[in-house]
């Protein structure tokens, strides 16, 4: 495996996670500080299935993602039901992410705090690339569907959305589940790439980095968070001296973004060239320009 390939894989993993969070944060307006927890669930679930039950990796990846999505409903339902949002939701998810990490720390069957070595290495560059393309295509289909429009309505004005007949709770839960599914998939890919898992890989720092990528990338955009995740992963990997400055830069960029460009780098902007659903429709002869 070449070095470039490993950078590509790492970029793809952050991109998948960022795309999922873009649906939750950029479209639906819910800020999560616990997505590392969903990544951990996907990662450990997939690793366990591959190692103990010898299930093919693609299936384990799917199972890990589904597990993360289901778990997100367990935490999301009581949190969103009370119509408490904003800060509150961020702190609840933060607590949830830490609980997942600390539970793993205290689960000897999954390696405990010491970690799980000898996870089979299954994530190839092509698999990671395919995952990103698929994730992007599905996310675009989602955001352009009625669901996506409902998400935007809930972000802009939950009260009006409700009067217009949008089921706010259901929309938010759907967005949360989809984003957790993406995070789970990213976690499973990470497990298959690292060959080793430990709870220390899924800290609050990872959650906030992910949120930073999405906020920097832009509100109501998939292209923005995708690009931000790729750049923020690739640059420190390729320029090692930049690595130690990475977090300083993240923080400073966040403040600057909040002050001068709250919609983010590519807020409200999509890359037309990557519009997969429309490409698909055009290929099937039902041409419809984006």
């Amino acid at each position: 495996m070449g070095y470039l390939q490993s950078v590509v894989i790492l970029c793809c993993i952050s991109a998948v996670a960022a795309l999922g969070l873009a649906i939750l944060t950029g479209y639906t307006g819910l800020y999560s500080l616990g997505h590392a927890g969903f990544m951990a669930v996907g990662a450990y679930c997939a690793a366990w299935l591959v190692m103990r039950l010898h299930i093919p990796f693609a299936l384990a990846l799917l199972a890990g993602s589904v597990a993360a999505a289901l778990l997100s409903l367990v935490i999301g339902y009581p949190a969103l039901r009370s119509r408490l949002r904003g800060d509150y939701f961020a702190v609840v998810t933060l607590g949830f992410g830490e609980v997942v990490r600390l539970l793993l720390n205290n689960t000897p069957a999954l390696g405990g705090a010491i970690g799980l070595p000898d996870v089979p290495v299954r994530t190839s560059g092509w698999l990671a690339l395919a995952a990103v393309v698929l994730a992007f295509g599905l996310a675009q289909a989602f955001t352009r569907s009625q669901w996506g429009r409902n998400c935007i309505a809930c972000r802009l004005d939950p009260l009006t959305a409700r009067t217009l007949g949008v089921d706010v709770l259901r929309t938010q839960l759907t967005a949360l589940a989809v984003s957790a599914f993406y995070a789970g998939a990213a976690g499973a890919l990470l497990a298959g790439y690292m060959g080793y898992l430990s709870p220390a890989m899924f800290t609050l720092a990872r959650s906030s980095e992910l949120l930073a990528a999405v906020i920097l990338g832009g509100v109501q955009s998939l292209a923005g968070p995708l690009l931000a995740a790729l750049l923020l992963t690739a640059v420190p990997e390729l320029l090692r001296f930049a690595a130690s400055w990475r977090l300083v830069l993240y923080g400073a960029l966040l403040v600057v973004t909040m002050l001068w460009r709250p919609q983010g780098l590519l807020g409200y902007y999509e890359l037309p060239a990557l519009n997969l659903p429309s490409l698909w429709r055009r290929m099937r002869g039902k041409g419809e320009l984006p």
Binding site: M1, G2, Y3, Q5, S6, G115, M194, G195, Y196, S198, A200, M201
Partner: peptide, 16 residues
């Protein structure tokens, strides 16, 4: 002194 850094550094040494 971090495990995850050691793992990725080992991979970089081997692959890059």
């Amino acid at each position: 002194g971090e495990v995850t850094e050691a793992v990725s550094a080992a991979r970089r040494l081997i692959e890059q």
